[in-house]
Amino acid sequence: MNVIIDNFDLFFQGFLKTLGIGLICMVGSLILGTIIAAFRVSPVAPLRAVGTLYVNLIRNCPLTVVLFLIAFGLPTIGINQSYYFFGCSALIIYTASFVCEALRSGINAIPAGQAEAARAIGLGFTQNLRHVILPQAFRTAIPPTGSVIIAMFKNSAVLGVFGVSGDLLGNAIILTGSRGFDPVPVYLGIGFFFLMITIPAGLVLGYLERKAVILR
């Protein structure tokens, strides 16, 4: 157990890095996911097609393949950035497809009468979405979106073995590898820190769900 106490700063920095990656990607994928979801319900056919194609391709592709394609593809078309940038972009692109589906399932859960009533009082497409559909859809979509985001925090661990140094898993590999510590306490330690992210996140989500629940 001394490994954890002696290297606590390494664990804690890893924890902060993992948390930071997760927060950046959370914001990014929520924004991108909302845009794609808007594409998928829009009256403009090419946008709908793009949205559907995006979701069906990315959702069925392993995160690792998306990561590799980004990391090898973007430099080829002239975008040279750090592995941190590539890693986060891939995670955002991957997660956005799930966020989009979560939001869309929220929209699908709203009774058609709501949209019809909004149209009947003369609201247009954007007004309809902004004032009637989306406020309800966001509430219904909180549980699935929340679990997508929690899954994303867990997926972010892949970045640590992908070339983004300094996150929890990356530090664990350094500790057990080149520094030769006993793997048992090290992995129990990073397991603990991952749970320090995912379990509170689950509790927050449960709280949000209870606050936002709509009785129909």
């Binding site: 972010s156 892949v158 057990t176 992995y187 990073i190």
Partner: peptide, 22 residues
């Protein structure tokens, strides 16, 4: 169940490699 669900799969794989020998 909560612990298993709260850990990333890739960490599980590393754990399977690093912890099971112990």
């Amino acid at each position: 169940i909560e612990i298993l669900r709260g850990l990333p799969v890739i960490v599980m794989m590393f754990m399977a490699y690093q912890l099971l020998p112990a």
